[in-house]
């Protein structure tokens, strides 16, 4: 979005900034022609945050994030394919609804993520066969959807990312947050990361729940939004 001249900020969050912020429902009724910065805790498909980006696109506006990126970042296998294409270290993974297939591929413990997009649930670690059956059944909504399984070779860490800046001070994690932002432009999200031998690997990305945004997070988000607006665009 470099070279953009002005930015209209649309947000469902009460940002602490002098910049004018438009509420999603007001924006959805408007037909403004501008670059849109869509700041939302949740860009899930068919939620308000998604429709804000869609509205901007239909009007022919540049928007962060795009609807394509919003869909892709939350669909775990696509997140991993696109992230690794952009040199983000990722864990080996398998997409399946078959417990047997998971066990043939990886040794316990195994981390299982939902590929079904309805849950805010992060992941479960299964240490044995019966636990794995239970977890797969539940995360797949009774085998309706596939799940994504990854081996647990190290330690799981979760961080919040605001415009590609992680709330955890760690170079390896920071690099992942930055690269994921460069790839998908999701302003606000949670990243699940696995630390293996001192190196961070991306495992999953999720929306943040509103309650998870702390006052200091809010300051961080607001500061970045103000900076974007002052500069009149994105880097």
């Amino acid at each position: 979005m470099s070279g953009a001249l002005c930015v209209l900020v649309v947000s469902n969050i009460d940002l602490k900034t002098n910049v004018a912020v438009t509420k999603p429902s007001a924006f959805l009724k408007s037909s403004v022609r501008d670059c849109i910065l869509n700041v939302n805790n949740d860009y899930r498909y068919m939620k308000l945050g998604y429709y804000v980006s869609l509205h901007a696109e239909i009007l022919g506006n540049k928007v962060v994030p795009t609807t394509e990126n919003a869909v892709d970042a939350y669909r775990l296998p696509i997140l991993l394919v696109r992230a690794s294409k952009n040199n983000v270290p990722t864990m080996p993974y398998i997409v399946t609804d078959s417990v047997k297939q998971i066990m043939a591929e990886f040794k316990f413990p195994i981390v299982v993520f939902a590929v079904n997009p309805f849950s805010f649930e992060g992941y479960y670690v299964a240490k044995n066969r019966s636990a794995l059956y239970r977890v797969v059944k539940s995360l797949s909504m009774n085998y309706r959807y596939a799940v994504c399984a990854q081996p647990l070779n190290g330690e799981m860490v979760s961080c919040k990312s605001f415009f590609g800046r992680s709330n955890i001070e760690d170079a390896s994690i920071g690099e992942i947050a930055e690269k994921v932002y460069k790839t998908f432009n999701i302003p606000i999200c949670k990243l699940h990361i696995q630390y293996v031998d001192g190196k961070a690997h991306l495992c999953s990305l999720q929306p943040l729940e509103m309650e998870e945004i702390s006052p200091s997070d809010l300051n961080e988000i607001s500061k970045t939004v103000s900076r974007f607006s002052e500069k009149g665009g994105f880097d």
């Binding site: 498909y45 869909v71 892709d72 669909r75 296998p77 696509i78 394919v81 997409v95 590929v115 079904n116 997009p117 959807y145 596939a146």
Partner: peptide
């Protein structure tokens, strides 16, 4: 977009 078919398509 919520089904495996989209994952296949995009991959």
């Amino acid at each position: 977009p919520l089904y495996t078919a989209y994952v296949v398509s995009k991959t």
